[in-house]
Design a protein around this nucleic acid. Structure first.
Length: 424
DNA sequence: AACTATTGCAACCGCCGCTAA
DNA sequence: GTTAGCGGCGGTTGCAATAGT
């Protein structure tokens, strides 16, 4: 990758910007726009690199910036968003008009993290510290030092990292029946329950009819997650394999997971209903010794919602299956979560509720936010580009064209996953 | 008042993905 | 298909302001 040419140049000013420099940059951009940032310094008469100019403009000079302290609502929102998006500050910033990613990042590192820890909440995982400590060795964190050792691999986008999972598996024999053999016997992709593309596409097509014609308006698309998730059991039985099927989700770039079918979800914030639902198509999976660890993303089953208040529609506006819950219940079976009579797990509190010691209905604004957030989350998280999928559906493409789009995305995702797995 | 520690903010660094040549 | 340039992002550092002793 080419490095910025300006970085090689000497004689460029660094450090704090003077008022004169600010004025020059401001004048130039208000008159001409920034255009190509690399040319801005020259045109504006600045001894700065374009990158520095861009940063200055975005973080300080932009006229639409909101200055001043963050409100409590903004902080709550940041926490909510962080639980979903992880350290994707730029994406978080798009939800807070007038705030920059840098500003939010600083606030998080200097203030919010501290508050969360004081509340006994791990800012990385958004789970109670006690629970985090139980799962991983205690880490020492110093505010101003790198937190690389402080980061739970399952944090960030709050979806389990398969590498982390595998490392835990290695230390936990009880995990082997579910996952470990993937590592012990082989690291090949064949042992992952990745649906064959043809079947995958079939499942997508079968859910196609439920989709709205437009993605930009109206409710969340009724994406056929359920069909997709149900695939695993079907495929497992058809092919005589184990029915312990898991859908991994993409976490960080190093994650060897597949996000093909499941939008990412915060394990804590979004799983107001963490319904570990057995497949309705598979009554045997209802929980008596049948070795089906198949879970699915129930987008439209109201019975899967067991909670009130913020329940029912969680903050994504549709029924979510918490991936972490999937992991906890299928891979970490010892996790102390007690399903209710419907097989649903107790809901988890939302962050602001935990922070403020209250637990109220999800504010309407949050609902609205969450609904629109859904698309961003999908876009941000999904290595298998769900946006591409939804866009494909929302456009008036013929089914064959949809399949082509999906097929391409599938190939891409699978390839990425395969490469990742080879590195384990 | 002087010194030290802490905090908050601004800016830099290095990497990544995209894209045009 | 390869490469270089670029924009963008997240992590980290530097430093002034403030608080504490």
């Amino acid at each position: 990758m080419g490095r910025h040419s300006c970085c090689y140049k000497q004689k460029l000013r660094k450090g704090l910007w003077s008022p004169e420099e600010d004025e020059k940059l401001m004048n130039h951009i208000t008159k001409h726009g920034h255009g190509c940032w690399s040319t801005v310094p020259k045109l504006a008469g600045l001894q700065r690199c374009g990158k520095s100019c861009r940063l200055r403009w975005i973080n300080y000079l932009r006229p639409d910036l909101k200055r001043g302290a963050f409100s409590q609502e903004e902080e709550d929102l940041i926490i909510e968003l962080h639980a979903v998006l992880g350290n994707r500050w730029s994406q978080i910033a798009t939800r807070l008009p007038g705030r920059t990613d840098n500003e939010i990042k600083n606030l998080w590192n200097s203030s919010i993290k501290k508050k969360l820890r004081q509340k006994g909440i791990d800012p990385n995982t958004h789970k109670p510290l006690a629970e985090v400590d139980r799962k991983s060795a205690p880490t020492i964190s110093t505010e101003r030092t790198s937190e690389s050792s402080d980061i739970d691999p399952s944090s960030g986008s709050a979806i389990g990292n398969l590498n982390h999972l595998l490392s835990e598996t290695a230390q936990s024999p009880e995990l082997l029946p579910v996952l470990g053999k993937h590592r012990k016997e082989t690291t090949s992709l064949a042992h992952l329950r990745v649906p064959p593309k043809e079947l995958f596409l079939d499942q997508l097509v079968s859910g196609h009819d439920n989709l709205p014609s437009s993605r930009s308006t109206g409710p969340i698309p009724n994406f056929p997650f359920q069909q997709l998730m149900c695939y695993s059991n079907e495929f497992g039985s058809k092919h005589g394999g184990s029915t312990n099927s898991l859908w991994f989700n993409q976490n960080e770039s190093s994650c060897s997971t597949i996000s093909t079918v499941m939008p990412p979800v915060s394990p804590s914030t979004l799983s107001t209903s963490t319904g570990i639902n057995r497949s309705p198509d598979n009554p045997n999976s209802g929980g008596t010794g049948i070795q089906s660890n198949q879970f699915y993303w129930d987008t439209n089953n109201p019975s899967s919602s067991s909670s009130k208040g913020s329940s029912g529609s969680n903050s994504l506006g549709f029924e979510l299956q918490s991936t972490s819950s999937i992991l906890e219940n299928s891979i970490f079976p010892w996790t102390d979560l007690s399903p209710d009579k419907n097989g649903h797990l107790e809901e988890e509190l939302k962050w602001p509720d935990l922070l403020h010691g209250t637990f109220t209905d999800t504010p309407a604004t949050m609902q609205n936010l969450s609904q629109s957030l859904y698309e961003d989350v999908v876009k941000a998280e999904s290595q298998f580009n769900m946006e591409g999928l939804c866009a494909a559906w929302s456009q008036n493409l013929q089914p064959q064209q949809h399949l082509q789009v999906v097929s391409d995305l599938y190939d891409k995702d699978l390839q990425r996953m395969s490469l990742s797995f080879e590195n384990i």
